[in-house]
Design a protein around this nucleic acid. Structure first.
Lengths: 178, 178
DNA sequence: GTAGATTGATTCAAATTTGAACGCTAGATG
DNA sequence: CATCTAGCGTTCAAATTTGAATCAATCTAC
């Protein structure tokens, strides 16, 4: 392997902008969610994902894959949210291994209260700053990068077996600003 | 406050692409760093930042601000890295409150070994996928967003007093792919 | 100068995250 | 059918992160 292809100045700018913007934005969103609704960012994302899925439910592994989170971490958070009544577990009749996380009515209600402010913040801090062309570049460029990383080698398999328990095709983008 | 300005389809695509690409990429980078060098992502970033600063040192608060991390979290990590000899603390003669984190020669050497693979991964998974126009859009659009969030209201102050202890202007972008 | 307010960093307990086992079931192979 | 492999979710201990105190030192206004 020859010489490293270092980043040029514009790539360095892009890289720091990417990581810094993400960190700052995510931090703001978390602060707001915690302060106003006692929710963590992950909890919001879980609810947003579930809200967009058929019957408002997803299998644990599928959900973990969609959120890019570890399985054990998801188990923990679903446990917390179950205590709070935001989510409920349901086991799958046809496959005793599978567990579904289901968004409760209470969870849905909280999500609907939290979503407006959340989305508004994303808009103010991100989309109001970007030109339409830049929005498209994000969607296209980063979308393609994400797709390749999700499939390509090294991806933590989330193997989508089309088992009889239903199951969503991976691309369910929630309406409530997942 | 009237109605919520929800995200349109392209904005939703951009938002999920942004968050998902970041999560996937960051996870890959962390796995690689941990496996090959026993480093966490944060530790790498700390070293990369320090390596680009004058005298390879920064004040704790300044560093925390640059990394978008809590002060207490940084205290912990610097403690860990000090044990490993990657970093060393130095107190400021003219201000007894201030503490500098200094990258040691050993730390610098490790960074130089880790950087090529790190940067190469970023290139493969991100920049090789993006068009030059998309790179520019990231740099410009997200750069502007980051700038506003860093300054605008709600920013966790990192007040840059130009005290006699030296101190870097906030924008030191490290060469080693911070 | 001195009280009072601010800033810099650390400490501490609680919450969360991580990754490697573990137990269990479904599906494949013989 | 018996066994073997692989997938799913959980558990567990260790590591990390968080945020609210805390302690000390600087700066401000009297």
């Amino acid at each position: 392997m020859g010489h490293t292809r270092w980043l040029n100045d514009e790539e360095k700018r892009a890289w720091t902008a990417f990581t810094t913007a993400h960190a700052l934005l995510y931090r703001r969103l978390e602060q707001r969610l915690k302060r106003d609704f006692g929710l963590s960012g992950l909890q919001y994302e879980i609810m947003a994902r579930l809200s967009g899925a058929p019957d408002r439910e997803m299998r644990m592994a599928e959900l973990a894959g969609a959120l890019v989170n570890s399985k054990s971490g998801l188990t923990y958070q679903i446990g917390q949210m179950e205590k709070s009544g935001l989510v409920r577990r349901r086991s799958c009749p046809s496959d005793d291994r599978a567990v579904f996380a289901v968004l409760t009515d209470e969870g849905m209600a909280l999500l609907e209260r939290a979503a407006p402010g959340h989305v508004e913040t994303v808009r103010e801090l991100l989309f109001d700053v970007l030109t339409p062309g830049q929005v498209r570049a994000l969607a296209d460029g980063l979308g393609e990068a994400a797709r390749r990383m999700a499939e390509g080698p090294g991806a933590t398999r989330a193997a989508d077996d089309g088992s009889g328990c239903s199951g969503v095709g991976a691309e369910a983008t929630a309406d409530l600003g997942a």
